[in-house]
């Protein structure tokens, strides 16, 4: 952890409300809100990749969006290279937009269906003045080859591309502004296994060649493990466990992390006989359990879990939100 932090998120709270009706605006009432993210703090060191895992409804994508300023936090701070977005002057905000980019999950909706791939990328270059006008065509080709697409793709429209090719094109558009920080929101979840491996390798190569810092949001543990230096496991809007990727995978200290890891199907030659590792479902964010949020599904929940929200440090940079994180696990 010698590298300077690129991104620091502190005590982030993001709430969602139903849109206000005209009557609400006139009377000044606010509909009830849901806390999608509830007090999350995390740090991403320059050049590192932080993996953010969790199931749907855990708030992991909301954090990614909040970092990019796509939703307004109710509380907390998000600082990129020491500065919050709101503290930046217009030039600083434009710079932020160049430095921090996003890659999306759904390759079918992440490109404007009406724009050819070449013009979509050229537009970005032109708008931000990345290269002089006469060099734009060449720069588009360079970006395409950077993500492993042939130059002929310039003329294609998104619907003529396969899912993997679209994902590469979206990546080229994001890289056009020469960002240093990428938020990747489930970048391979919609791809076939063989294509998924290609894109993961490409992301690994780009990270090395361009020195990118990444926040890698995904639900698939194998994918996150493959990509991340550090890991944060989310459940119901809070980080349950975080630490160096290896440590968390080798020695998970939170029952939820352990449940997640054992629920992932493994390559095996023996047919499964066991019962499911968890019971029940993730509670509604409108009705969050008191104390520890995981206690309703936790196999080792105790009375204390109902009343006291836990926080335990279990190793260097390794934190687990469980009262029993430090106690050895009984087999």
């Amino acid at each position: 952890m010698s590298a300077a932090p690129s991104l620091v998120v502190e005590d982030l709270v993001v709430e969602f409300a139903k849109p206000r009706s005209l009557a609400d605006m006139v009377t000044g009432t606010h509909p009830p809100t849901v806390r999608a993210v509830d007090g999350v703090s995390l740090t991403v060191a320059a050049g590192q990749t932080l993996g953010l895992v969790g199931e749907s409804g855990s708030g992991k994508s909301t954090i990614g969006k909040a970092i990019l300023g796509l939703n307004r936090p109710a509380r907390g701070s998000i600082r990129f290279e020491g500065k919050a977005f709101a503290e930046r002057d217009p030039a600083g905000q434009a710079e932020f937009r160049r430095r921090v980019q996003m890659v999306f999950q759904d390759p079918y909706s992440s490109l404007n269906p009406r724009l050819r791939i070449g013009s979509a990328i050229a537009e970005v270059l032109r708008f931000h003045g990345i290269v002089p006008e006469q060099e734009i065509a060449g720069e588009v080709l360079r970006l395409l080859s950077l993500v492993g697409l042939p130059g002929a793709m310039v003329e294609r429209r998104p619907r003529e591309l396969s899912g993997g090719q679209r994902q590469r094109a979206g990546l080229a558009r994001a890289l056009a502004v020469r960002p240093t920080f990428l938020v990747l929101d489930e970048p391979v979840a919609a791809l076939d296994v063989s294509i998924q491996a290609q894109v993961l390798n490409l992301l690994g190569d780009l990270r090395r060649e361009l020195g990118l810092t990444m926040l890698f949001v995904a639900h698939e543990l194998g994918v996150v493990r493959h990509m991340s230096d550090r890991l944060a496991v989310m459940y119901l809007g809070q980080i349950m466990e975080s630490g160096p990727s290896d440590a968390v995978f080798r020695d998970p200290r939170h029952p939820y992390t352990r449940a997640l890891l054992s629920a992932v199907p493994k390559m095996t030659t023996v047919k499964r006989q066991r019962a499911a590792v968890t019971q029940g479902e993730i509670p509604s964010p409108l009705n969050i359990p008191s104390g520890c949020r995981f206690r309703t599904r936790c196999p080792m929940a105790q009375p204390v879990c109902e009343t006291v929200p836990p926080e335990v440090t279990v190793g260097p940079g390794h934190v687990a939100r469980c009262h029993f994180a430090a106690t050895p696990i009984n087999p």
Partner: peptide, 24 residues
Amino acid sequence: WSLLRSIPHLDAPTGRLATIGGQP
């Protein structure tokens, strides 16, 4: 063979995944 090799595994972090070139 290639499909089995291209899955990122939980237990062993690999440097690069084996890939199947090209498109279906």
